[in-house]
Design a protein around this nucleic acid. Structure first.
Lengths: 196, 196
DNA sequence: ACGGCCCCTTAACAATTATCAAGAAAATAG
DNA sequence: CTATTTTCTTGATAATTGTTAAGGGGCCGT
């Protein structure tokens, strides 16, 4: 039932024992969402973390009427409004569904109980936070040190699924430019590639 | 000797026992750095984390000849090239000293041994990573959703010590603009405030 | 007090990026 | 398959931001 979730846990904490896994697994709940639906919304407190079994989701903010995409998460990854989850405070962002999704959820209280009961789950939580930290650092660095064109190429290189599966106008806000500008950048890049 | 360090630990992990603290404290080494010196440099592996007892430090990248500031850390906080530290891979960034600093260091191997020996230190590591994650998320969000002027005001609001203690031309790169542009923004803001 | 950095400001000009508007292409529903 | 919606492209124009160059103020060491 939860093979791919277990694979994810084993990769982060190889020392995981069967009985510990059973304790975790027994708390899972499954949730299905269709394209366009919201997993979490602005102002609400995020009360669960979700492993993405299938689908593609997006973090975004609403900034005076327009949506700004902060990141994307495909199947095989965890997703949550993690800053809201950690301190159980209202979230400033939203998560919506770009491709129909099947999620495997753990509630906040379950996570706290697992932390208390299983030291190995502490390690898991630490590694998740460390991974997320590294992801976001690399994004901030990219925003501060690269040009829009370089950021697009970096996304194509490092997160190619985004180019393949996310509409361009959402990618544009992810790299901090308008859809029109991204379209022009792509034309320029295509010309270069075509000539070569 | 390490009162402020202990206060920091107690805040994050109130359950810390005296004997656990002794084990941590016994591994500390103290380091002094003068303004302008480098704590870590590009290409090197970060082998320690440093509590800042006194001073002010800066993360930055060298991008074709110019330095781009990614963040600042004052006394009372931990600092490290944490992405490099975590995976013990060469760092892409640098850390230098803006105000003479006194650091209390823990080496990578000591951290690993403390993780293995004291579950409470796992919790500490998790909370550090979670804090860092939230800091960087808020920075990324600011870069994607705010204008340069709004970002400057947000820094003034949320990290006022930066405005007071960091030279403007370094703040400029931190919010993603040129020093000249920041100077103009500040003039505009001053006029607004003056008229009101 | 003086010279010599740093750092900040200003201005003119250039480059980049956004906005607005229209239409083409692609995806989706019926 | 056609109709409809959504997404992508293009062009003209405007706004924002960067570049280059020059000068001024403050601070530090001697």
């Amino acid at each position: 039932m939860f093979e791919s979730v277990r694979a994810y846990y084993q990769k982060l904490i190889p020392q995981l024992q069967d009985h510990e896994w059973s304790a975790i697994e027994s708390r899972f709940t499954v949730q299905h969402l269709k394209k366009g639906e919201l997993l979490t919304r602005q102002g609400e407190i995020c009360r669960q973390v979700s492993f993405i079994n299938k689908g593609l989701l997006r973090f975004f903010y609403n900034v005076d009427g327009r949506s700004v995409s902060i990141g994307f998460m495909p199947e095989g990854e965890y997703i949550a409004q993690y800053d809201s989850f950690l301190v159980q405070a209202p979230s400033k962002g939203n998560i919506d569904v770009l491709e129909d999704a099947e999620l495997v959820n753990l509630s906040y209280t379950d996570v706290q109980e697992l932390y208390a009961a299983y030291p190995v789950f502490q390690v898991f939580g630490r590694k998740i936070a460390e991974m997320l930290f590294m992801m976001v650092v690399s994004q901030t660095t990219s925003l501060l040190t690269l040009s829009p064109e370089e950021r697009y190429l970096a996304v194509a290189e490092e997160e190619p699924y985004i180019i393949r599966r996310v509409p361009q106008y959402l990618i544009a806000s992810y790299i901090g430019i308008t859809p029109e500008h991204l379209s022009r950048l792509r034309r320029k890049l295509a010309r270069k590639a075509g000539v070569a």
